[in-house]
Design a protein around this nucleic acid. Structure first.
Lengths: 130, 130
DNA sequence: AATGATATACGAAAAGTTTCGTAAATGCAA
DNA sequence: TTGCATTTACGAAACTTTTCGTATATCATT
């Protein structure tokens, strides 16, 4: 059985930082700040990123190694769990809780490749059997 | 060809009001306020709802008929378009733009009935043919 | 017409989120 | 060791969103 994480949901700015850490692994504030600035195509002050990551550490969304002067941050929030929680909230708010409605909308409005469709079909079969 | 609506995206509180209007059709502030209070299981001040709906009218998310003293509000934002826009933003922020990832997550984590699965399969077939 | 209930208008407080500036500490290089 | 660059700490400004209180208008009833 999986333990409940019970972490608070990240805000938008926090989620962006999580995405970077999920992708790159443990990183310094400077690195995260550079990634962010690159993504948004505008400079973000170093201390802005620092402050956010400190807040996130307080919330336990991140942890950090302070052995060296330059702290190294690690995502404590698990990507899958976080996505799942945010998705539920989003579905409730936007599709009145119907994941079905959302899926139809998602499939209908995005370019979906044949391979992706195959994957979905495979998943459906798995669900039908299981 | 469908005209671009170009409406601002609703905030969370605004979205809740839209949901009520989409479902119930043109309504008064009082009605919307009662629905909201019921949903959240706590009283929401009448003027809070009023203020929000006035702001939304200014943003063109709603329009209103002021012929009678009690104004009647109508959702101008179209449900499908709004959901689509919010979904895109959400997918970008949470699933790095991959609707596929989201669909897999949505199907995997929710109870999905056989009928719903059939609908999805039908949709996929339609996409594959079209 | 006076009273009371209910409506709108609207500024501003309250709450939440994001950004920034300054101070103090630390490490490195001359 | 002195000076410079970089880091962390942290309060607070700047914004956004949500909630509320007060003033005023309107309608129905008496």
């Amino acid at each position: 059985m999986s333990k409940k994480s019970n972490l608070p949901q990240p805000t938008n700015a926090e989620l962006e930082i999580l995405q970077i850490l999920w992708k790159a692994g443990p990183s310094t504030v400077r690195f995260v700040n550079e990634q962010l600035s690159e993504q948004q195509e505008k400079e973000i002050r170093y201390t802005t990123t620092l402050k956010l990551m400190q807040i996130m550490t307080e919330k336990k969304l991140l942890s950090r190694n302070t052995d060296t002067r330059t702290h190294v941050y690690l995502a404590e929030a698990v990507q899958g769990d976080t996505q799942k929680a945010l998705l539920k909230k989003f579905v409730d708010a936007t599709f009145q809780g119907s994941a079905m409605n959302l899926v139809m909308q998602a499939l209908g409005n995005h370019e979906t490749s044949q391979q992706e469709l195959d994957e979905i079909k495979a998943l459906i079969e798995k669900i039908e059997k299981g």
